[in-house]
Write a protein that binds this DNA or RNA. Sequence first.
DNA 1: TATGAATGAGGCTTCATTCAT
DNA 2: CATGAATGAAGCCTCATTCAT
Lengths: 201, 201, 201, 201
Amino acid sequence: MARPSNTEERRQQIVEGLLRVMAERGYERASIGEIAKAAGLSSGLVHYHFTDKQEILLTLVEQLAARARARVKVKLERVKGGARAQVEAFLEAFLATGEGADPASVAAWVTISAEAVRQPEVRAAYEKVVRADLEHLEELVGVVIGRRRAKAVAAGLFAAVQGYFVLAAAAPDVIPAGSAASTVKRMAAGLLDMAQSSEGA
Amino acid sequence: MARPSNTEERRQQIVEGLLRVMAERGYERASIGEIAKAAGLSSGLVHYHFTDKQEILLTLVEQLAARARARVKVKLERVKGGARAQVEAFLEAFLATGEGADPASVAAWVTISAEAVRQPEVRAAYEKVVRADLEHLEELVGVVIGRRRAKAVAAGLFAAVQGYFVLAAAAPDVIPAGSAASTVKRMAAGLLDMAQSSEGA
Amino acid sequence: MARPSNTEERRQQIVEGLLRVMAERGYERASIGEIAKAAGLSSGLVHYHFTDKQEILLTLVEQLAARARARVKVKLERVKGGARAQVEAFLEAFLATGEGADPASVAAWVTISAEAVRQPEVRAAYEKVVRADLEHLEELVGVVIGRRRAKAVAAGLFAAVQGYFVLAAAAPDVIPAGSAASTVKRMAAGLLDMAQSSEGA
Amino acid sequence: MARPSNTEERRQQIVEGLLRVMAERGYERASIGEIAKAAGLSSGLVHYHFTDKQEILLTLVEQLAARARARVKVKLERVKGGARAQVEAFLEAFLATGEGADPASVAAWVTISAEAVRQPEVRAAYEKVVRADLEHLEELVGVVIGRRRAKAVAAGLFAAVQGYFVLAAAAPDVIPAGSAASTVKRMAAGLLDMAQSSEGA
DNA sequence: TATGAATGAGGCTTCATTCAT
DNA sequence: CATGAATGAAGCCTCATTCAT
């Protein structure tokens, strides 16, 4: 009898709307009205499906993280080769094809990082995602060079990835096109070699 | 006959006010009122010394860049050692002492990156600073491994630095404390070694 | 399901509000707050229905012009008599009944003229209205004295009308009450006679 | 010993500044700062020589009136011919050379009319000027057609002049260039003829 | 579920005016 | 007389949020 719920579909539309608007206006200037328009909905409906703007942002954080995890999963499944190849696959999942996912998502992610600096809830969500990704990378690195040294190496590689995101979004003209993935992989190779050769120390 | 101009002093106060407020509120939420309060001035006076809010931000970008350049200069002057040591000194200038300069400046810089994503004027200023820093690093790297390979290597190291800034500001608990400078220096060593050993190729 | 749109009604209220406030404060000093109050609405709602203050003014220009056109139409329909009587009817439509429409509208129109001096959009709207009215009058005058001479005569009569508006609004005590319509009609008679008697020239 | 007062000179500069700024920004938007800049002075000095903005405006009204009176005087002194020629000379003094004085003054005068609609002090000054001019014209007209009929005729001709001012400032493209003076003189001729021919009535 | 009108707070900016020098 | 820094009050506009329908 009752109309079938389309809540999930609507929420999805709205989150996509935020992604699109945020990519070109930032979070603060992404008004509910704009988000609604981008989603093809009325502004009132946005508040029907989300309590407030921040909740949309938090949902977006989750979705971007989920998409990244999915890309990583696919890449890892396809890997032929040992532990080092897996580390490379992980990094590629973030940086391959241009400089990672689509430009809008990268821009949104950079914006989210900046919001995480001050909004506690955003920070918590951001931190959770970063922690998970980092632990995953750490695990892969750990197989090559051992747990002890993995933490710093993983953090360094992850930082490089995040840094490329920022530069790709904010100053795309100053970084050599298409060099991100290969350079980070080279960084990984160097760090892993170094750690292995000093293994006995 | 006239009151001596204190414009520069006032502008400085205001820029500092923005830095402080922005570090804990972000740019959009750093209202002129808050900035004025942080600077100990009236809000009207802010607009007497700056055309608009963005002009304060652009001035801050310049100042942060100038401070960074100064730190680099000092570090480079103190370097004993060859070209590799200079690359390390450059990286240290950005990352040493905690995770580079003071936390407020790092947070502000991350915020600026995010603003650069959409505000053309901010992007121009940001890009100019990044380009200059990057070219400097490239030059130092070039001495070790030659111009041709220097571009990608410098970009990678610079990205790592920027990434550490983001993580330090937005998710400080997930990166191993104090590992940034040493890890990036290790990255540099690896990349430089690799480039040198393949020199004949 | 949705609330029925009352936008047009609201816009009308707001335009009336501007008319009333502008008549006693002028345009610049007619704040959105005052306009809203005069319209019995909240100030936020004013900006919900109009992009900005100027759009309200432009809408008012249209409305005042439409009302004038309507008065002219009625007068012309009632005219018994030839072409000269039509010219007189046109002039009466603007000046009869006191010094034209209601005092508030006259005051508003004078204010609009002054705004037209500097605001390009207002000038465009004002010019369009004046041009249309003037062409209409020119046509009527043309029937009596021919196209060639009609332009200057129509402009002169129209200027007289506008001048009476200004004096009625800004210095009502210095012009003889109720003389406007009859004097302008006399001017018309004189100009038309003169043009006709020199016809062969 | 004391520095010779340059108050009058300064006041003059300031009034000219207002004239210039008002011509292109209107009265409300003619800020003290802009006026000062146009006058080549500091904004503080403006308030040293005038209590407030309105006082500058009132002074400007006086000056514009004085200049008009001077032009009228010159024209009348040069007149060869009778009373009718004097009426024409008066009208020419206002409208000759383009559409009266310089465009900036005309624009300023139109602005002043609009301000006179609501600011009592401005209205008083405006009215005083208009009354004086009108009485002068009335006197000249009276010589031709007698006191009784002069009032309305003078008012009509004066209204035409004011109307041409408005149109010249706000919609210059819609009135035939250079036709103002001759048309108004024709209006005068017509009105005077009519009044004389009905003299016995 | 859905719409879009409505509210009211808050932000940026302008500006007349004052005042220390 | 003169400067220009300083203040504080408005004003326009944006926007998250609420709510009647």
